[in-house]
Amino acid sequence: MLGYIIRRVVAAILVVIISSMFVFAIFFLGPTNAAAVICNQNGRCTQERQALLEHSLGLDQNVVPAYGEFAKGVFVGRTISTGPGAHYDCSAPCLGISYVTKEEVTELLKDKYPATLSVALVGGVVYLFLGCTLGILAAKWRGTTTDKLLVGSSLIVSSIPYYLVALLAWLFLVNEFNLFPKTGYFPITDDPVKWASGLLLPWLVLGVANSPQYARFGRGSMVETMSEDFIRTASAKGLPRNKVLFKHGLRAAIVPIITIFGLDLAALLAGTVFTEKIFDIDGIGKWGLEAIPVDLPVIAATVLVGAVLVVAANLIVDILYSFLDPRVRLA
């Protein structure tokens, strides 16, 4: 078990390093010249000014030493020049300095991450419970009108693009009819009520829009489990029907659902771009989106966070699996 975990962690670190290289290279070598964009922002851009900016941002370097600088900053910190003659001491873990706001990316990340965490965790739990409940009920009443209604409506909801649902929800429920409080992120430590009311609609929209997938999957998993021989054994022992369904059926059907949920949650934690953008929540999804295409350090940081989360979620799900299913042994 321990050996397995160590091997997996080493592999995970390699994956994160390689993906950070790719991200860095894609944006560093990409067609957008960050220096030109920043230089043009205040209108008076000259060749000399642009060249100076390029040099101070390190964009005139070769990609390999530039990445080396970036990697060094992550582990031991580094000194970054923010302009001609201006230097900034960025301590480890240093993900660079925003080209646009000149702030430390690590600090910004710490600042913005709680918003994403709030949206993703509660939103994820909402759709897990909503979806699973509907799926289990549909499986329980398989073949009945209720089942067909649940499956049919989940198909309709899931065929509408998510950004449209979110946009319409904001437009009508907040902007037009004021049915929900104004959305946004307020730290839970400041005012828990404000925190919850600001995120209420995003949670609901995220939950409702993603639940059909879980309802269908949960129903399928449950129906499959209920046809297993051990379910017949449970009935043959004299167990009440609900106990057969919820103790024996659900226990087996929940395992694949948890697996998928782990990976989905990681994707959410990496930044809920549409949700944050539409509901005006200052999380890393919106931050990363708005950094494109200029703010290379910010883009690299958000993608790196995403890579770390997805890789970690995979590892956690695999380890969790061995606890959920005693037949699975990690070796």
Partner: peptide, 18 residues
């Protein structure tokens, strides 16, 4: 399970794996 019980064939599938 009290007055009448059944032992199913293939215990590996007839018993709950978890």
């Amino acid at each position: 399970g009290k007055e009448a019980a059944m032992i199913f064939q293939d215990p590996l599938t007839a018993l709950h794996p978890f």
